[in-house]
Design a protein around this nucleic acid. Structure first.
Length: 490
RNA sequence: CGGGGCAUAGCGCAGCCCGGCUAGCGCACCUGCUUUGGGAGCAGGGGGUCGCAGGUUCGAAUCCUGCUGCCCCGACCA
């Protein structure tokens, strides 16, 4: 049915690219590694932003904006942070162009060299902490709870639309607290916010946990994360939240006077999700017929397609369609009446299916006579005929059902592809098949590295809700107190 | 930065080995008529410095040399 689309079976990564480009979410740009997010894709991102922003504000955060450029010297102040990002920074060295003396276009004016080079932010900890020094004097200034929506640049070798691009959009929260406990609680709280968003809005089930030292954010004391399973069995980190300890406060000399009149360094967190979530959304729900969107994030939740033979029918059916649209919009639904006279119904059916619209209503002459409408749901591709007077209640209910069904399907898939493994032989076999592996680990970086080198699998997280269970490390045989989750990842 | 491949209409490709008339096909696009309950049919039409620069030749998309760009595979990563 869906022509021009690879199937997941044939070529999973081609299938992903096909959906992103053909559903009009994004395309590659003239700039290597950078994408153009197209209106339909951006509309989904805006819906994500709107809900996340509300969740951040509900938890007491305020938005602000910090510069795109960071003085190079700021980067060197936190040792492990520099080390983590140095290899992928874009650097601004000059501030002026001029006409080439030989008449060959525009060249960099070497006379306009910056005294101090500027880094295009790969993340904003350094510029933000340099700023916070001026904002924080006393415990009365704490906690400081700030978020920013921004673009960042990480010069990646290999890029893929949404999943890894040289420039991407994200939000980064940066908070300052008087105590260690409060900062840890903040990092944990924001991870719960992310998990809630992923599960309730994106219909993506996620595991919550802590990263191993190898996978920790550069400059963090502890990194928390949510991990989702894609349909090819690989893991995708969907959000991270970091407890930064006093690392940045010390590097940037951010101190406050406590109630006891003692000068102390503040405690910090940072947390972020990016346009990568768009990739997660595509890879979690979509099928071989195209994109599948959860109703809560779909820019169009219901599309109405009129079917007609002549001008007279066209007008009568579009009138009815408009009536239904208004009726549904009163319930707060996002509805589109596709009254284009330039495409045939069959074309429209396929197009909206490909674009993942959760519910399609078709109205033709027969329906007009019978007072009915054909309802098709994107997730199961099932169709039924309803009486027009029933659609008010039924459509809202159907959208809820679709939202739940998508979550349940994704959860069932993850459950079916999660395995407890207790021997190294079994581990090597299972990892080839994909999915999450729950195995014991001796807690050493050496073992983790060895497993990665041998199998390309990494520890995705040490689950929060993992039950204590004594066992032996799947690789070294040394004692272990709990299982951790291994997988190959994006 | 190492290994491989590609560059011909908006997109996808054929032609190149073995040089030769006006460079072709599918999709898309434009016009008209018939159509419209799962990607319409027919007819007509528009669109190309064959990546760039040299060379060989009577003649180059095709052969030779150099350059540039892009893609794929590896090391890095949300």
């Amino acid at each position: 049915m869906a022509k021009d689309l690879s199937t997941r079976e044939e070529n999973y990564s081609q299938w992903y690219t096909d959906i992103v480009t053909k559903a009009d979410l994004a395309e590659n740009s003239a700039v290597r590694g950078c994408m153009v997010i197209k209106p339909y894709g951006y509309a989904i991102w805006e819906r994500m932003q709107a809900e996340l922003d509300k969740m951040f504000k509900d938890t007491g955060h305020q938005n602000a904006y910090f510069p795109l450029f960071i003085p190079k010297s700021f980067f060197s102040k936190e040792a492990s942070h520099v080390e983590g990002f140095a290899k992928e920074c874009a650097v601004v060295t000059h501030y002026r162009l001029k006409n080439d003396e030989n008449g060959k276009g525009i060249v960099v004016d070497e006379a306009a060299k910056l005294e101090e080079e500027l880094i295009v932010r790969p993340t904003s900890e350094t510029i933000i902490w340099d700023t916070y020094r001026g904002w924080i004097q006393s415990y009365r200034d704490l906690p400081l709870l700030i978020n920013q929506w921004a673009n960042v640049v990480r010069w990646e070798m290999r890029t893929r639309l949404f999943l890894r691009t040289a420039e991407f959009l994200w939000q980064e929260g940066h908070t300052a607290h008087a105590t260690r406990e409060e900062a840890v609680a903040e990092a944990e709280q924001m991870l719960r916010v992310y998990a809630e968003f992923a599960e309730s809005w994106m219909a993506i089930p996620v595991l919550k946990g802590v990263k191993s030292a190898n996978e920790r954010f550069a400059g963090a004391v502890e990194t928390y994360c949510i991990e989702a399973m894609m349909q090819d069995g690989k893991a995708l980190q969907a959000g991270t939240s970091h407890f930064l300890g006093q690392n940045f406060a010390k590097a940037f000399d951010v101190q406050f006077l406590s109630k006891e009149n003692k000068l102390e360094h503040v405690w910090a967190t940072s947390w972020g999700v990016s346009t990568r979530l768009m990739g997660a959304l595509v890879m979690t729900h979509s099928d071989d017929n195209g994109l599948v969107l959860p109703p809560k994030l779909a820019p169009i939740q219901v599309v109405i397609v009129p079917i007609y033979r002549n001008e007279e029918q066209y007008r009568a059916i579009c009138d009815k369609g408009l009536e239904i649209k208004k009726q549904l919009e009163k319930l707060g639904l996002r509805v589109k009446l596709d009254d284009r006279d330039t495409q045939k119904p069959g074309f429209k059916f396929n197009e909206w299916e490909f674009k993942g619209v959760p519910v399609r209503l078709a109205i033709g002459p027969r329906d007009l006579e019978n007072g009915t409408v054909e309802v098709a749901r994107r997730d199961t591709l099932e169709k039924e005929v309803l009486h027009i007077q029933d659609i008010d209640q039924k459509i809202s209910h159907l959208l809820d059902q679709i939202q739940q069904n998508l979550f349940q399907k994704a959860l069932d898939f993850r459950t079916a592809n999660t395995f407890k493994v207790d021997s190294w032989e079994e581990f090597k076999i299972q990892i080839e098949k994909g999915g999450f592996i729950e195995a014991h680990w001796d807690g050493t970086a050496e073992t983790e590295q060895f497993i990665k080198d041998e199998t390309k699998a990494t520890i995705r997280l040490i689950p929060f809700d993992g039950e204590a269970e004594a066992g032996k490390c799947v690789f070294s045989g040394k004692p272990s107190a709990r299982r951790v989750v291994f997988a190959r990842s994006y």
